[in-house]
Each structure stands twice: as structure tokens, then as C-alpha cells.
Amino acid sequence: MPPAFRNPATMRTIHAWLLLLPALAFIAAFTHYPAVNTFIHSFFLDGRGGAPAQFVGLEHYQYLLEDEVFRKALVNNLLFASGTIPLSIGLAMTMAFLVNAGLAGQSVLRLCYFVPTVLPMIAVANIWLFFYTPEYGLLEQIRGALGLAGVNWLGSESTALPCVIAVAVWKDAGFFMIFYLAALQQIPPSLGEAAMLEGASRLYYYRRVVIPLLMPTTLFVLVNATINAFRMVDHLFVLTQGGPNNASSLLLYYIYEVSFKYWDTGYGAALTMVLLGFLALASIGQFGFLDRKVHYR
């Protein structure tokens, strides 16, 4: 046996590497390698019909600046994020307070709030599609009964994006509620008793004691909600296909169209770089959060 293999420290290092190797190989092959390749391919134009790819430098990035559809998808995505994130977090917190308040039938309440989480987005979007359908959809029937004029919810540029936001909020709020519930149950009741002795009002207790104590959870949920806002596009396939006139298109949906409908994967790579940029921003928050979690232990 060579002397190095008799050294226990070396042996432990080799063991560790062997244990890690399979997982690392997969993550490298399907996360790091494609991420790096996205960057490289964003400088190339795909060769058509078997021709080699052609280096075009920053051309794709220059085109980004003039591409109206990209600008629209980007603005939509920012609007989508600024709609879904605060609404779903606010509702999630409200739901957790209500479920945790010892009201009648609280397990049924929790079930109702949580159930959208386990349903496939693509399936529930079909149900929402019917709600939004002009003339005979549920929403229009209600408006018709009230004598209001008809609205083409998904077919008008002004309402398509808000409709898509509503579906996303409905899907995510119950999921985030779970994390708030877990956090609420960690708060000792003695805190409430102490606050009561001090004469704090209910509102004051929630605003100054409970919500600050939920901050780590809010941060965790915030990062997840941000990632979701740039990742969740399934419902667009059913509801609007990004339309009308790209009024509800989001970045990842546009990447899909460019890469797999028009097969311009070079430009698709440049678009993916923009998306990765946003995810990297969210990741800075996440790393800070994970570090703090580890220190608490």
C-alpha cells in the first residue's frame, strides 16, 4: 500500500469525494455546464441545417435593447413580480393568523387554503380559463346578472396580466401560509401574556411583537416568491399564450417561444442570461439568509 493511503486523513478525503461524486456529476452536468454554455452560446448564431455556429459577439445583446417584445416581457415580469410577491405574502400571513386563531373549523380552513398548492398549475389554469371566458364564463355570468357590460378578461391588453397575477396569487398564498403557521407555533404564549399585562392592544401586539418575530420567515418566503415570479409560466400556456399582443408574456415564456417555436437558441441564450441575472439577485438574499440560519444553530 503506498504510504498516502495509510494516512487516515487522506483516506477520509477520498471517501468524502467518492460519496459526493455522483451528485456532483449530475449537478455539474445539468446546472453548471448548461449555465456556462448559456453564456457562451449567447455570443453565437445557430448554424442552420448542420452548418457550424457563427460568432456574432454582442449582437444578441444589442438586439435585446431594440426588441420590443423582450422589453414588454421584461416589464410584464417586473409587474407580475410586484403584484404576486406582496399579495401572496400578505394573504399568506393573514391566512396563517386566521388558521392559528382557534376559530371554528380551523382544519377545514387550512385545507381550503392549502389545496391549490398540490394541484398542477396546468390543470387549475383550465378551470380559471372557464371563469374568465367571455359571455358564458362564470365571471361574465355574474356580471351579466348584475347588468354590467361584458369584459373579455383574457383578451384585453389591460386585464390579461392582472388575471394571470390573480391565478398565481391563488396558487402560492396557501403554500407560503404553511411556513408562517410553522413560525407562529414557535412563538411562546407567554409573550402574549406579558404584552397583555403591559396593556398592549391587539393591533399593537401583532404589529410590534408577532410580525417582527416572523421576519426570518418573511425573508425566506420573499426569496421563494421572487424565484417563483421568474419561473412560473405554466398557466400562460393555457390562459393567454402570452397574448393579446404580448400583454401577458413573461421572460421564461418568451425564452420558450424564441428557442422552441422560432428555434433561435442563440438569442434564447442571451434572454436566459437576463433571467439568470434576476435569479442571481434573489440568490444574494438567499445566501445571506442561509448563513444566518446556520449561525442560529
Binding site: F30, T31, P34, A35, R231, L252, A282
Partner: peptide, 8 residues
């Protein structure tokens, strides 16, 4: 952060 979902 960089999930396979976005590296399609």
C-alpha cells in the same frame, strides 16, 4: 437559485 427549470 439556478434551477434546471430555467436552463431548458
Amino acid at each position: 437559485m439556478i434551477m434546471p427549470d430555467v436552463l431548458v
